[in-house]
Nucleic acid binder design. Structure first.
Lengths: 355, 355
DNA sequence: CTGTTAGCGCATTCAA
DNA sequence: TTGAATGCGCTAACAG
């Protein structure tokens, strides 16, 4: 049963639109504050940015005037005049994915404490879109870029180089970084999980990932899985490998398909988003024992994984920390530290009941 | 068992830092393009913004020069000169919460097609923080604001009024809007769910929400629940009402507590975030039948709710649509439409197996 | 259709 | 410690 409610109202009443006399929006400027405080424009500018360089008397007079007038500085003009920016741009594959939200949160928190702000966009997993966004961000003269991606178009690379802004790449450890890197290694993590599953006694370990052709992170994870098999002395088996779209439904189908194609599979490592959760729910629906009938491991430690029945084995990646460290590295650069940073923040294998 | 890997490397190698001759970052300016194309500065400006006003010949010459030089316009200067902005600011309670991510996504998508961008911040559910962020956004001279909140500090209201920027409030339908509203009614939605549960035959319907003292949306939902009871001719029972923090664990505790305090409760309506999912998992762990032993309903239609066993009854709110419509209303205002908008986008009650 | 003049609001640099 | 001159890179308004 579905109830529905929706109404649309057009009204003429609104506080702002009635109060808005001068369209375009503005307010007091610095000179207005200067007049009110009986000082020069420069003194106001200083009172706001380097208050310690003024006598206590004038400083107070200026700040009082600022309060009284309700002056809000124009940081666009400040940016233009000083050639410095208080904004950093971050591009993630998808805003809706809570994994990236963690990274964004870490970045935003650190930037805020430094009085800076974050311009966010999502590329929809597309390099072309990323290129367009990088152009837009550079046009806004952001002070730095954080890219959750390590593949870029030639034009994007060229724009970044010409702009000379500091850049952080996250999401993987690239061979040839643009500038700074704050990340973990997808290949190392996938290999570690593969070895872990083997150590738990599983003989036929399946691997399900997103499309490795278009997604480097998926490709690296697959590489790690195969490296794990190799170091175990096991052969690669196409029946045990699948590439599927993201999503809960996709995970459930992948599990069922693989168990049909390779009935002796005893564990499946889902190296993408929420695939493992979808598979677990499917097992619940079918009454399959996890790990008795099939063991399930995931890649990211989503909050929910430790609440399901059974709880899910997975990797834990330092998403929030990546965001924080990225922001810190960027701030360092803007302050003039010129030591490029390559941070591999590592990962953990979290063993739970599902394996 | 936990594996761990983490390495930290400081290196001096980096493409950009070596290529970066002129620190501070810049590139070609418009006059460089003008020289290269043999035209005036204004012609370049027009070629980029109103190409149809130029002869095909000059336009091509300019755009070729732009390509060749790799010119990236400085929209900070453009903004200052034109007193227009290509950026909109959005403040949500939490970036990490995927509910808000949907709204953000809708906003960002619509803005992008209009060549605009989104500055995002989270207030951490605090009005004070919201005030600070509004100040920062206005300082950046954003062209509009989208606030997922309907309670604001007096100073915030004052700043907004003085700036004269268009504002959208989302997240509830306020009695006294600042400007435009694009939302749904929390009270109506909660009442509808309460009546729905009664129509399914449940006699003792519990209500669990977030803190109603600090969170207006929680307060409105509680009001809707009580209105529902009243129209059913049922009395308010404190034993059937709880306020708890957010989170899966919190939901599971709430369910257990309420069933201990009021053993005859036959359905619980969880009006916050992921509480219902936490409760369902707890029921699975304890082997309680849902809805046999206890029925469970949630508020937001998270993707996962239709995959759990059993699937969860909930409300469906038009999060993405709220983002889209907000952006559209804002764009309309910037273009000069001055009809304030009050949109109630409604909701649906989704009946599934858990009730 | 194209160019010229003026100035957006602030910070830098110098002088007082 | 404070102030005056100059310009950041671009667009509006006008002239040609």
């Amino acid at each position: 049963m579905i109830w529905r409610m929706a109404t649309v109202t057009e009204t003429k009443k609104s506080r702002v639109s009635e109060a808005k006399v001068r369209p375009g929006g503005q307010g007091a400027r610095m000179r207005d504050v200067a007049h009110a405080a009986g000082v020069s424009l420069m003194t106001v500018s200083r009172a706001l940015r380097e208050p310690q360089k003024l006598s206590e008397e004038t400083r107070k007079a200026v700040l009082d005037a600022v309060q009284k007038i309700g002056y809000v500085p124009n940081s666009v003009a400040a940016n233009l005049a000083s050639n410095r920016s208080t904004v950093v741009g971050q591009i993630v594959p998808s805003i809706q994915n809570s994994l990236y939200a963690d990274t964004v949160k870490g970045t935003a928190d650190v930037l805020r404490t430094a009085g800076m702000h974050l311009l966010i966009a999502d590329s929809g997993y597309s390099m072309q879109e990323e290129e367009a966004l990088i152009g837009a961000f550079l046009s806004q003269r952001v002070g730095g870029l954080i890219l959750h991606n390590t593949d870029h178009t030639p034009k994007a690379l060229q724009m970044i180089e010409r702009a000379g802004v500091p850049v952080i790449e996250t999401g993987d450890v690239p061979r040839d970084p643009i500038d700074m890197v704050v990340s973990y290694s997808n290949a190392d993590a996938a290999k570690a999980m593969t070895l872990h599953l083997a150590s738990r006694g599983f003989k036929r370990i399946g691997f399900v990932s997103l499309d490795t052709r278009t997604n480097r992170r998926a490709r690296e994870r697959q590489r790690g899985y195969l490296a794990g098999l190799k170091s175990l002395g096991r052969a690669k088996d196409p029946l045990l490998m699948m590439e599927v779209p993201g999503g809960l439904t996709s995970g459930s189908h992948a599990m069922v398909d693989m168990m049909q194609r390779a009935p002796d599979v005893d564990a499946i490592f889902f190296a993408g988003d929420v695939l493992a959760i979808g598979a677990l729910f499917e097992a619940q629906r079918r009454g399959w024992k996890v790990p008795g009938r099939i063991a399930i491991a995931g890649f990211d430690d989503l909050d929910i994984l430790q609440h399901t029945v059974p709880r899910l084995t997975c990797l834990r990646l330092p998403r929030l920390e990546i965001g924080r460290r990225s922001a810190e590295a960027l701030l360092g650069r803007m302050r003039g530290d010129d030591a490029p940073v390559l941070l591999d923040l590592g990962f953990e294998v979290i063993q739970r009941e599902s394996t």
